[in-house]
Nucleic acid binder design. Structure first.
Ligand SMILES: [Mn+2]
Ligand SMILES: [Mn+2]
Ligand SMILES: [Zn+2]
Ligand SMILES: [Zn+2]
Lengths: 141, 141
DNA sequence: ATTACGAATGAGAATGATTAGCATTAGCAT
DNA sequence: ATGCTAATGCTAATCATTCTCATTCGTAAT
């Protein structure tokens, strides 16, 4: 199903700002974007949207299951397209580059850790903070 | 070594606010406290400290390795006494109860995941969000 | 005990991300 | 084309945290 279908099935009207935001994520230039990132990119491409609208739309998309929200170390949160596949993240402390990974054993043991202590796991967040090798690190100056 | 020694070896003067904050954590009533928590508890026990000072002291203690800072889901960050043992956390989404756990396999595979992708792991944060069994859940109403 | 000086504190202003309020506008069904 | 409701875009408000700066405290040397 396409963008329009996605929006409708989530009970959201197909509006200009929403379509713009959605296609930004689907264009796939950068997977992980903050509200500010989205706002600036839209402005840069000549699309005028309010920052408040960006925040609203991102949260609605998260509720609707279109996007996933992450809280990397620091302040602002980032969103990425929800493609069904759960994964965790490695973040470079120098350049901010993000790499995704999935480890079935880790997932398994989390469930187990929760169960053993009488918890019913709802979800989790796992962020690895590291430094990429110089060859890949985009850190400048 | 005692509190005073800790402070000195960190190059921090032994001041009233610092001693108060430190003993609050060492009293051990609650392991995980936010700046606001600390502030209120001190006020409640008749100790007058400024909120700004609490924030400053908590961060200094973190730098000094006396405390560890965590960002559980949501806004405010919490601190706990650094007792040398790294561990991760399970947080109840209903009542907020926090349980600690350590899984060597998970730790192992995180290092591996980072290494395989050309990252030098610096540290990580792993939070499991769950619901405790009714018998333990402190959620009210 | 007194002095002296830099570090620490406290009160409030400032910041930065995110949200709320509200008048105006734009989807969409009739 | 019309009308109703949801959506948008400003701006103002929140909230946690940090910054500023005048005042006070801790400490080491008189
Ligand atoms: Mn991702
Ligand atoms: Mn803990
Ligand atoms: Zn890097
Ligand atoms: Zn609970």
């Amino acid at each position: 199903m396409n963008e329009l279908t996605h929006l409708k099935s989530a009970g959201l009207k197909s509006t200009l700002p929403r379509l713009k935001v959605l296609s930004l994520f689907e264009s796939g230039s950068e997977r992980h974007l903050s509200a500010e990132d989205v706002y600036k990119k839209l402005l840069a491409s000549g699309d005028d949207v309010g920052l408040a609208t960006v925040y609203r739309v991102l949260n609605q998309f998260e509720q609707a299951g279109l996007l996933v929200k992450h809280h990397f170390e620091g302040d602002k949160s980032v969103f990425e397209l929800n493609q069904g596949d759960h994964h965790d993240h490695i973040v470079c402390l120098q350049c901010g580059r993000v790499e995704e990974f999935f480890d079935a054993t880790i997932e398994q043991r989390q469930k187990k850790a929760a169960a053993e202590r009488g918890f019913e796991l709802h979800d989790h967040s796992l962020y690895i903070y590291a430094n990429c090798v110089k060859s890949k690190c985009q850190y400048r100056s």
